[in-house]
């Protein structure tokens, strides 16, 4: 089967307008974008170019003002708030620039959180969360709270939390924005490894070309439109 015929994510003529009347601001002016399952996509562009808005839509946190967003066959643009929450629960994982771990909560409990909402029984929850911590190399740190972990470690816990439910897509919003270059590289290696090992689709917003270099596809945004798409598989390094 040709994967291009049925992409995991398909945006068609997606627009997003904030506000109404004369003060209305059009953040997205008609985006077309296909993302194949298993891809590693970096989204780049200056502030206000529409990349964050696109990521919010792709993360099912927001809906387009107009246009079509198909994800795994769902017409996301027509789903309500709770239906989108269930999509996120089942198919998406999030990694943020500021880590966004629950304070005063152990690494294990942070990673367990999505499983709690999924309704896994206690023992199974613990095992699954431990396995996820193991994948990011923090198994022995399971009982540490975020305050007792370094930035890089916190981001690893956040990644473990994002992948613990075996989602289809990992959305990372400037995951290395708060880290030094060495830690950044480690995080990128981790994401790349997860992408290659388990085939999870990674969508990552970044400002840094160094980080985008880890991706297979780079989407450049400008003024609410997709400016160009680099497919690095076609350009041998």
């Amino acid at each position: 089967m040709d994967p291009a015929a049925d992409p995991l994510i398909r945006l068609r003529n997606v627009t997003k307008t904030y506000g109404e009347g004369p003060t209305a601001f059009q953040a997205l002016k008609g985006i077309d974008l296909d993302i194949q399952a298993g891809d590693f996509v970096a989204v780049m562009g200056p502030s206000g170019s529409g990349k964050s808005t696109t990521m919010n839509i792709l993360g099912c946190l927001d809906v387009p003002s107009a246009g079509e967003f198909r994800f795994k066959g769902f017409h996301v643009e027509s789903l309500d708030r709770d239906q989108r929450a269930l999509l996120r629960r089942k198919y998406l994982g999030f990694v943020f620039q500021g880590f966004n771990l629950l304070a005063r909560t152990s690494a294990l409990e942070n990673v367990e959180l999505p499983l709690l909402y999924r309704g896994d029984p206690k023992g199974q929850r613990r095992d699954t969360a431990m396995a996820a911590l193991d994948k990011v190399g923090l198994k022995q740190w399971w009982d540490h709270t975020p305050a007792e972990l370094s930035g890089g470690q916190q981001q690893r816990v956040a990644i473990a939390r994002a992948i613990v439910t075996n989602p289809d897509v990992l959305l990372a919003d400037e995951p290395t924005g708060n880290l030094d270059s060495e830690r950044s590289r480690e995080i990128m290696e981790l994401l790349k490894g997860l992408n290659e090992a388990s085939g999870i689709t990674v969508l990552m917003v970044t400002h840094e070309a160094d980080m985008a270099a880890f991706a297979r596809t780079i989407v450049h945004f400008k003024d609410g439109l997709v400016e160009r798409i680099e497919d690095k598989r076609k350009v041998p390094a």
């Binding site: 708030r81 709770d82 929450a85 999509l87 996120r88 629960r89 629950l102 959180l113 909402y117």
Partner: peptide, 14 residues
């Protein structure tokens, strides 16, 4: 922020 995290992870409003 915590509520935001929970919602992003997939908690429904109820």
């Amino acid at each position: 922020r915590e509520i935001g995290i929970r919602l992003a992870i997939g908690a429904v409003a109820s």
